[in-house]
Design a protein around this nucleic acid. Structure first.
Lengths: 84, 84
DNA sequence: CCCGATTTGTGCGTATGTATC
DNA sequence: AGATACATACGCACAAATCGG
């Protein structure tokens, strides 16, 4: 898929934390099939840019997804959608 | 040109970010002609040493220059001054 | 064709300072 | 006081592309 600006999807003033919104947004793409199994997600730096959030926030979102088995992080290669 | 220590040019406590100072310093060399078109910049590791900053900071500076079309980064080869 | 060196790409972990809720 | 979030910066490890012998 083509990655474009997603900063508009983040509500910085609502009740849901930013990192949770990022995690939910990525999860939605995976469940919709836009992000196929084994496909690589944008890098942390790219996600930081795409969502307009801090790196720490991106890392927290990815950590939540990895913790739930949704994605797999590979040192030096990237973050991938877990195989179904 | 000969590359020597440039750590003295960086102010780690001022209002200007370190990566911006590095980017500005490199830009000055390009505009002065010391770094000709298509010439290769020092490697990220060398720039890290020369400026006495972290590699991530160097990469951020180079990313800014690449974003502005000043340089071109090539995986496995190096960073080059964009053709005039 | 293989091997090693070089260089960039990506991620890991952490720290500091500021601001806001 | 505490949690969240942003921005910057540090150092390190591993992966991948390139080039030379």
């Amino acid at each position: 898929m083509t990655w474009q600006d997603r900063s508009g999807r983040i509500d910085h003033d609502g009740p849901v934390t930013v990192w949770q919104q990022v995690a939910d947004d990525i999860t939605a793409d995976i469940e919709s099939g836009e992000l196929p199994s084994n496909s690589r997600l944008p890098s942390e730096a790219e996600l930081t840019e795409l969502y307009g959030v801090a790196r720490g926030t991106v890392r927290r979102a990815l950590a939540a997804l990895a913790d739930g088995g949704t994605v797999t992080v590979v040192h030096g290669r990237g973050t991938f959608v877990a195989a179904r």
